[in-house]
């Protein structure tokens, strides 16, 4: 069937060409430089077709490092909503998962999943580039499966989300 064949081709292309958008959401830079290190010769994610496009309209993959606070949470939600479907989110680092060492600080709301739905969590402080690449591949798994509406719940209102 040509339709099935086309569907298979498209899903393969999605896995082969994930363009990423990186947003530093209140991280200490440790994870950011590891994300950037993934692009450089030793790790070279372009082998897998991964390119840092820096523009939410073009990206398929949102890499978020760091904790959410009251100011950047709005930016994070904006970026997520600007991305065209299909899209996946990878939260990187202990802070991105839960708030990490900063969890009890007064200006920290918590992990990335307080704001947007997260598909893959990569733990570590900071995670090694290998771990980040592995997390990205787990996320790509989701892109290669046929999309189901139950996969992606709508954004739910969370405490702090509406505050500026």
């Amino acid at each position: 069937m040509p339709i099935q064949w086309l569907d298979k081709l498209i899903r393969r292309a999605r896995v082969k060409s994930p363009w990423l958008l990186h947003f530093d959401c209140g991280s200490c830079n440790g994870c950011d430089i590891e994300v950037l290190a993934c692009l450089t010769p030793v790790y070279d994610v372009e082998r897998f077709g991964i390119v840092n496009v820096g523009n939410p309209l073009h990206a398929d993959l949102l890499l978020v490092t760091g904790t959410v606070n009251r100011r950047n949470g709005r930016v994070l939600t904006n970026l997520y909503e600007q991305m065209a479907a299909p899209k996946v989110v990878v939260a990187i680092g202990s802070c991105g998962l839960s708030g990490g060492i900063f969890r009890t600080a007064y200006n920290v709301i918590g992990g990335v999943d307080q704001m947007i739905p997260v598909d893959v969590y990569v733990p570590g402080c900071p995670p090694r580039p290998e771990a980040i690449i592995d997390g990205v591949f787990l996320a790509l798994d989701r892109l290669s499966r046929p999309a189901k509406s139950s996969d992606r719940p709508p954004l739910k209102p969370v405490a702090g989300r509406s505050s500026p």
Binding site: C25, S27, G66, N69, N72, V75, F102, T104, Y106, V108
Partner: peptide, 14 residues
């Protein structure tokens, strides 16, 4: 500014 402010100086108190 303020996108990365976490309040680390205050963490010293707890």
């Amino acid at each position: 500014l303020g996108y990365v402010h976490r309040g680390l100086e205050a963490l010293a108190q707890n």
